[in-house]
Each structure stands twice: as structure tokens, then as C-alpha cells.
Design a protein around this nucleic acid. Sequence first.
RNA 1: UAAAGCAGCCGGAUAAUCGCGCCUAACAAGGUGAGGAAAGUCCGUGCAUCCAAGGACAGAUUGCCGGAGAAACUCCGGACGGCGUGAGCCGGUGGAUAGGACCACAGGAAUGCAAACUGCCGAUGGAUUUUUCGAAAUCACAGGCGAUGGUGCAACGGUGAGGUAAGAGCAUCACCAGCGAUACUGAGAAGUAUCGGCUAGGCAACCCCCAAUCGGAUGCAAGAUUGACAGGAAGGCUAUGAGGUGUCCGCCCACUUCCGAAAAAUCGCUAGAGAUUGAAAGUAAUUUCAAUACCAGACAGAUGAUUAUCUAAAAACAGAACACGGCUUAUGAGCUGCUUUAUUUU
RNA 2: GCCCCCAUCGUCUAGAGGCCUAGGACAACACCCUUUCACGGUGUAGACAGCGAUUCGAAUUCGCUUGGGGGUA
Length: 117
Amino acid sequence: MLPKHLRLTKKSAFSATYRVKHSVYKGGIALFAGIGKKEPEIDTRVGFVVSKKTHKRAVKRNRLKRLMRESYRLMLKSGEVGNSQKYLSIIFVGHEKAIGKSFSEISSIIKKLLGEI
RNA sequence: UAAAGCAGCCGGAUAAUCGCGCCUAACAAGGUGAGGAAAGUCCGUGCAUCCAAGGACAGAUUGCCGGAGAAACUCCGGACGGCGUGAGCCGGUGGAUAGGACCACAGGAAUGCAAACUGCCGAUGGAUUUUUCGAAAUCACAGGCGAUGGUGCAACGGUGAGGUAAGAGCAUCACCAGCGAUACUGAGAAGUAUCGGCUAGGCAACCCCCAAUCGGAUGCAAGAUUGACAGGAAGGCUAUGAGGUGUCCGCCCACUUCCGAAAAAUCGCUAGAGAUUGAAAGUAAUUUCAAUACCAGACAGAUGAUUAUCUAAAAACAGAACACGGCUUAUGAGCUGCUUUAUUUU
RNA sequence: GCCCCCAUCGUCUAGAGGCCUAGGACAACACCCUUUCACGGUGUAGACAGCGAUUCGAAUUCGCUUGGGGGUA
């Protein structure tokens, strides 16, 4: 879990990010990006979504969310976050193909997504 | 030794680094942090709001007996029935003599003291033949019968003997099943014995009858408090201020109250029909008493990642959202105790 | 999270305990008709979500499971 000031916490913020319609998809994970930053010192907020339609079991959905969150956190710490810091908000959406993959696979997918956005 | 039955345990462990929710603190740290099913939502409660507030009917639920429990499509003990060689397991198990409906096809007939299939008989009455004139034989016409074969899930008790023209529970008998009455045993379900009249189909997870129980609806997104920005309504023109004016009245805005209401905030929210340990009562479910500690509480929603070691192995089903009692379903590897059956040895 | 409803051929449906080896329409396939296609005609294949219980007998009655849909902001 990331600190609260780095997370998206409002429904309006989520829908505002989706409305920009700027997205990349790879290996079962989609990455949405919101509007660009004007002042670079503002933190980029991030959200992680796995819908109930993706898989029925809560354990599998939570697992995917945790893996995505952990790999983003480690990249944020080491500074390998690609172009993501140019945006005010980003959202990772997990799909059915990504369920059951290991941490290293998820990590490499997210690294590619952050480079391409 | 093998195969079974029952009851129960466990639900990865340790260390390091990075990281998260909550609490205490106050910027340094410390404490604590998912389950045996948290699941399905199939029952039952607490809690909350609204409606009703008396009685009857209607309706719903339950359905062998006794006990436990707040209650339950709950649990425990027993009865009866079924399955199994057995240990054991399973059972929505009141009433069919209150009444109604239904029982396809087949079959004579499906509940009406019934026969138009296949049949048995020809005692009695009738016809024909023979005759030793007593009667006998044949026919299957009247009629008698419900045993045999067949149908069907099911055919109005079963088996054997007696009996008869042939037959039949047939005012006959033995045993068995079932029904009723009486007596005894038991708290009761029920069991045992004797006697009776000889027989009563199934279905109530169809309506129904009987007995017992039940205010209804909605679910914590229940509900309570605070309440920003718009906007609307009412009050008061007086004690105050501003506007226009030379002054006053009047008007209007500040003002006050109410409505409204942010994916807003706080509460509800976790100290409990609770947990652990021990003792006592009870066959048991369970109850009582004592001690100990406080043990998740989020709101885009916390337990994760990596490495090392252990184990057969980086391991099944699976993630709290107000709480509790059950039921049901899912579940890897392994362990413990008791019991049964079979085989072998002593 | 909480509360409801539904499930029958590829699709839409009929069915209320036996007449159901489940009927009909559209679609599919084959043949006929036509110079050919269409229309029309004849035929063929194709389903009770799964498991158990009640019953002589279950698509239908009763449980459990599975899948789908809806409501609640």
C-alpha cells in the first residue's frame, strides 16, 4: 500500500482520468493516464483496479492488485518510472489474462507500460 | 498386516530488507492486524427505522418421544423403519375410519362388495343318450365360482390343512402380517402378553384435517448528529448599519428562523447470548462458578514483495465490511485415539 | 456489501405428475420444384444447467450446487 497522498481516493478523479482516453495495453494490464502536469513538483496519484467481472474470487483479484501495487512502488523507489511523472494521475486496470502471473512477469509488463505511455 | 467406520488435530515455520491499515504516542518509536470455512445467503436472533397497536378469520411455518437452547430447515439422548457381514450410517417419521382430487398405458376390474380376457364347476334346474328303471354318461343352456394364467408400481391379507360340484376367511383350524380392545412395563414415543371380529389399496414433499408456534415491512447503503456553496420560503421594519433624498414615510439589502443539502465529516463500529484455562453438575447437548487477558475495524477499502534455511514441497480451499448461533458447500499433505471385519502367527 | 428473480434444440418459445422417445416457429443440412436464385413443398439432425430426495413414474414437487440477470448510490 502506498501512502495516501500518492493514491487516487475520489470517484470523480477516477472518471476524470478515464475521460482523457489515453491508454496503453500489454499482457493483460491496461494503463490509463490523465491530464498532464503544469507544475512538476505535484505528486502523481495512482489507482489500481481489478473488476469483479474479471474474476469471481476475491483472493485472486486482491493478489493481482497487490502485485501491481508492489512493482509500481519498487520502481517509484528506484526512479525507473518512465514517463508516468508527466501526468497528474494514472490508473492500472488488471484483466483476466494477468491473473495467475508471477511477480517478475507483472513487474516487466508494468515497466514496459510506463515506458510507452 | 490389509481394508473399513467414528471422533479429533493441523491449515506452513524461522530470520533479514523494503512497504501498508488502526491504536498509543508526538515526529523517534512501540503495540496490533483475516478463516475453518471469513464463502453460499439456506434458517434463526440481537440492533435500527417506519407502519400497526383490541378480537376473530385468513395466512405462514413446524410435524415420532424426552431434554438442551435466545431462537432455528439447530443440537443431544432415545423409539421405530431402512442399508451394511460388522463397527456403524441414513430418515421432511402426525392423520388415508372427516371429506374431496388423482392412480396414464395395460387389464375383466384401480376402490364401485367388481367379471363382456383366459378359466374351473355343472351339486341344483334344463336338453340328449343309455338303462339292470335305482341311476349313469354327455352337452355347457340357465346358473355357480373368484382358485389358475395373463396385465400392472399396486388386484380387497399370506402359507399350509380341512372343506366343496367347483371354490371362497368360508359363523373351520395352525402359523405369520395387519387392525381394534384390555392388562402390564416405561416419563413418553413405544414394547410385551391375552382376547376379538376375520381384512381395512396407494398418494397428505396434492387440497385438506389435527396439534403447536408466529404483529408486519425494510436492512448498517439500517439509522443518528454536525453541516459548506448555490437556491427557495417566512418573519420583522423596530433597537443597529448601508443605499437613493434636504427631511420623514415607504421600498430594498444586510439580519433572524426554516427548507434544502457535498459520493462531506463524526457516530453507529466492535467488551461480546464473546475468547482462553480450570473446577463442578449431567449419559450427552449444555449449564453454573472461578481466574486470566483485551484480541482487525477499513471506506478506491489494510497482511504484500524479495532472499536464505527447514519440511516430500517456496503448499489446497479461500480474504473480515454491524455482530452472533446454526446449516450447507469447497479444501493439499500429514498426524492421533477408539472400534469393526478378514488373514497370518503365538 | 445487502436483497430479489431466472435457467427447455443454434435463437425465440409451448408445457401446471403419465397422452413427452419433449411440441411449434425461425435458422442449419439433404432432396424436389425452377434455365438459375428466391419463394414454395418433403424430410433429417438438434434441448429439459448439474447432483440428490419424494413418487410406481419428475422438464414439472422439494433440497443442495452451478451459471446468468436485476434492484439498492
